[in-house]
Design a binder for these strands. Structure first.
Lengths: 213, 213
DNA sequence: TCAAAGACTATACAAACGTGCAATAACTAT
DNA sequence: ATAGTTATTGCACGTTTGTATAGTCTTTGA
């Protein structure tokens, strides 16, 4: 239809405003995302924000959705990819959860800013749970597949506990890897994550090749 | 306000104002800590805040110091205690880092709120680094002592990597344990942390007794 | 070519913000 | 008792906040 072009324009502007919002939040925290600061960061007038978003809160919620998208995209790509070897799948999932594009102080700042709002904003809490619960439960099938391929059998409760431990070590390594260091690179944390997974699951994991993803 | 007021020692009043500040931040995020909201939460007038704190920012900084104190107190107590067995020391440190009083959604909210401000506020960043770096390096001697007691020798780099992995899994378990769940208790996360430590370090650890700390 | 639509600007406004300050009530020392 | 100190109040000021609204500029469809 001919109104597709118009819609496309609006979508681009919305995305640009969301990006400006994230810039403000990463820089000054959630209270830095004022309509005036966001408008200035996007190079538009104050009134335009209310033209694209009914309220400022809606804009911030959209910025939160975008943050979750950025955080989960690499993992989702691994889960969607058709990789035969369960060991390879697990190793790539670990790498996608710790390193690469999400190992970034800016993303950590955004994550913390929204995290601190979950108590205050029920809608934000709803968005969080909707994205976090699937992520948390994505480790169990990965582990189960590896164990099946090894011909080992674990009690269901044991798999659940291992998944919690794996999620924890990956989250902790992501967090530490985001903070600026002089010694370690984010790739070092990926390597530590793989070693930790080998120790926790008592398996050998392939090291991901140099190709991205 | 009432026409008569109770007078307080300056130190007590400051502590009460800090507590009220933390209440506001945990509830509404960092932007919820307005002078009016804090004054209302503490049951005092607006002007009193400026009498005890030169600026509102100073009050928030003090609230951050208090948060760090709450977070590190249990670990510090373990490190200060005279426990002969290195294995027992390590196990108690792990327990103090994951469970007990710091396994609390309120503390997680506070931690996230301040975390999101580190980019914006250099003084806050300074306070963070001053407390975080010692905490991060407290795992290495604990691990080294356990290994020495076992008669095992690890390369220095290997100890460093194990300490990073241990810190990560403990931080991740603390984080997950703070979030409200129906299934697991914070004590379950402590148990998973101890199991993970045993797998990572390939040692057996004693389970802490029921006595607190 | 021209009216309709909508993306966009400019400005105004009430509420909430941090801070300044004079007045007051409660404690302390003598 | 009384003077001095200070914890505390109450209010006012200028600034910043989100939102509302009227008007301008650009694009679109026939």
């Amino acid at each position: 239809m001919s109104d597709t072009f118009r819609r496309m324009q609006e979508f681009d502007r919305r995305a640009e405003l969301v990006r400006a919002t994230l810039d403000c939040i990463a820089d000054k925290g959630i209270q830095g995302a004022t309509v005036r600061a966001v408008a200035a960061a996007a190079g538009v007038s104050i009134g335009l924000i209310r033209h694209h978003f009914e309220t400022k809160e809606n804009m911030v919620l959209e910025a939160y959705r975008e943050t979750i998208r950025m955080l989960t995209a690499p993992c989702d790509r691994v889960l969607a990819a058709e990789i035969e070897s369960p060991h390879e799948r697990l190793a790539r999932f670990i790498r996608a959860s710790i390193g690469g594009e999400i190992s970034d102080l800016r993303i950590l700042s955004l994550w913390a800013a929204f995290m601190s709002q979950l108590n205050a904003d029920p809608e934000m809490k709803r968005i969080h749970d909707e994205a976090h619960l699937p992520y948390r439960s994505s480790f169990e099938p990965l582990i189960r597949a590896v164990m099946a391929a090894e011909g080992r059998h674990l009690a269901p409760g044991e798999v659940a506990r291992l998944a919690i431990a794996m999620t924890a070590v990956i989250d902790g390594l992501w967090l530490e890897g985001c903070l600026p260091k002089q010694a370690e690179t984010s790739e070092d944390y990926v390597a530590i994550g793989l070693e930790a997974a080998e120790a926790l699951l008592r398996v050998a994991l392939p090291r991901p090749t140099n190709t991205k993803d």
